[in-house]
């Protein structure tokens, strides 16, 4: 039977380290996506996520709402991604290594599909970190602006502006690719 986050956090706080493993397996893939897109490659994303889990463990007693462990962890991850320094451009390693996902891609035009993905990833990588963060939180993680504001500490209007600019920039970047 699946345990709720609050219960698992309680068990960890009482010294049951294995219960933390359940939380790790519950959130690792869910949040890996954000880290991968934000940092641009799997290696840095795994490092950031690993760090976020470790930080969360160390400060678990300060998690005020254990049943919302996931949201709390996500906030730590977002902060961690911000401070991980310049995005290292390892484009050749990006996503193309996600072979499982690629196998599920359209089989009709696999080459086009791969190219399109690379273009998207490259364009997302060209966004400023602020714009990329706002775009990913809004559209990929499907958060509301209030939630985004609480996570990032940035006002709603500024976030809206960042998302709008990110969309504009993506449009230009993707058009450039196709026209030139």
């Amino acid at each position: 039977m699946e345990s709720a986050d609050g219960e698992l956090v309680t068990r960890v706080l009482h010294g049951d380290v294995n219960a933390y493993g359940v939380l790790v397996s519950r959130y690792r893939d869910r949040y890996a996506r954000y880290a991968v897109h934000m940092l641009g490659n799997r290696e840095d994303a795994e490092e950031a996520l690993q760090d976020a889990f470790t930080r969360a463990y160390r400060s678990l007693s300060r998690c005020e709402e254990p049943e919302r462990f996931g949201a709390w962890l996500f906030r730590i991850l977002v902060n961690r991604c911000r401070t991980s320094g310049a995005r290292r451009m390892r484009r050749s390693q990006t996503f193309v290594h996600d072979e499982g996902a690629l196998l599920n891609a359209s089989e009709e035009h696999p080459a086009e599909q791969t190219m399109w993905r690379e273009e998207i990833e490259r364009a997302v990588g060209e966004l400023s970190p602020d714009q990329r963060e706002a775009f990913l939180l809004k559209y990929v993680e499907e958060l509301g602006y209030e939630e985004m504001s609480e996570i990032t500490g940035v006002g709603v209007s500024a976030l809206k502006m960042r998302v709008m600019r990110a969309c504009d920039r993506l449009r230009v970047l993707l058009k450039e690719v196709h026209s030139g």
Binding site: A4, D5, E67, A71, E141, E142, L143, G144, E147
Partner: peptide, 11 residues
């Protein structure tokens, strides 16, 4: 889950 987003709790 899709409607509420990634940060919704299980409850």
């Amino acid at each position: 889950h899709r409607a509420l987003g990634a940060l919704a709790t299980a409850d």
